[in-house]
Amino acid sequence: MPTHATDEVLVRVRAVAVNPVDWVIQGTSRITYRWLRTPAVLGSDVAGEVVAVGAAVKRLRVGQHVFGLATGTDRGRDALREGAFQQYTTLLERLAAPTPDTLADEEAAVFPLALSTAACALFQPGQLGLRMPGDPAPPGPAGVVVVWGGSTSVGMNAVQLACAAGYDVVTTASAKNAHTVLGLGASAVVDHRSPSAVDELVAAIAGRPVVGAVALGAGSTDASIDVLSRTGGTRLAMASTPVSLDTLAGRRRLFPAMIPVFTRIGLGTLRSTLRARRRGIRAAFVWGSSLRDDDMGARLWGEVVPRALAEGALRAAPAPVVVGEGLGAIQGALDRQRAGVSAQKLVVRL
Rank of each mutant, 00 (worst) to 15 (best):
R315W: 06
L334D: 06
L309I: 05
P133M: 08
T247Y: 11
V9P: 07
G212M: 08
M258R: 14
K345D: 04
A197N: 12
P306S: 00
R252D: 13
V347G: 03
D101Q: 14
E200I: 02
G27R: 05
P125W: 01
R315I: 03
T117A: 11
P256C: 07
G302C: 09
V21S: 12
V159Q: 08
G266R: 15
A283S: 14
S229H: 04
P139H: 07
P138Q: 02
E49P: 05
A276D: 02
R94P: 02
V66K: 03
P20Q: 09
R271T: 13
T269Y: 05
G232F: 01
A114H: 01
R30C: 04
A114E: 04
L248M: 09
A52V: 04
V16I: 13
I225W: 05
K176M: 12
V57Y: 09
Q124L: 13
L228H: 06
R271V: 10
T241Y: 12
L184R: 01
L236T: 07
T32Y: 05
V190N: 00
R37P: 02
R61Q: 15
L274G: 04
V50N: 09
D295T: 13
R292P: 03
V321A: 14
V227L: 06
L113A: 00
G143P: 00
G150F: 04
R338N: 09
S187L: 13
D226Q: 14
S196K: 15
A343N: 14
